[in-house]
């Protein structure tokens, strides 16, 4: 008996086809999604790391240990929101050793002054909105010596 060529798919055939397509499509979709996420993460990391380096170089190039940006901030200062489009920056300055009390504005004390303690500077670059950490750098500064990290 000849098969009726005008006959369409049965519901069972359609369901099986959809299930097969799903079985193949879901892992491929997950793979592509994961790859996209990795590419975006790689971009975020390199952009954020360069932003952190830029800020670190800025602090290093300041010939002013008494600059407000090097005042002790405590462990959770507010982030500089919108430091760069899409990224926030948090500058955490803590006292690692000695006396790091703020010096008088506009006055930088001589090396013999007790307020020339060793400061630890942590820079954290996060994604605006999500707060996801993209890069962080740490260095130590005292008045006349620079310790890189």
């Amino acid at each position: 008996m000849r098969r009726d060529r005008t006959r369409g798919l049965t519901l069972v055939e359609l369901v099986i086809a959809i299930a097969l397509a799903g079985l193949l499509g879901v892992p491929i979709g997950m793979l592509v999604s994961e790859q996209l996420r990795s590419a975006i993460q790689a971009r975020d990391h390199s952009v954020a790391m360069n932003l952190a380096r830029a800020e670190m170089e800025r602090l290093d190039s300041l010939n002013n240990f008494c600059h407000a940006d090097l005042n002790v901030t405590g462990l959770s200062p507010p982030a500089l929101v919108g430091y760069w489009p899409g990224y926030d920056l948090t500058r955490i300055v803590t006292c690692a050793a000695g006396n790091c009390a703020s010096q008088s504005p506009g006055v930088c004390h001589p090396p013999t002054n007790t307020r020339n303690g060793l400061k630890r500077v942590d820079l954290r670059v996060t994604r605006t909105g999500s707060g996801e950490l993209a890069a962080s750098l740490t260095t130590y500064r005292t008045k006349y010596v620079l310790f890189g990290s």
Binding site: S46, N50, L51, R53, A54, S61
Partner: peptide
């Protein structure tokens, strides 16, 4: 694809 890069170098 596009990526904006910025960094800085201190002249020591």
């Amino acid at each position: 694809a596009q990526q904006t890069m910025t960094s800085s170098v201190a002249i020591r």
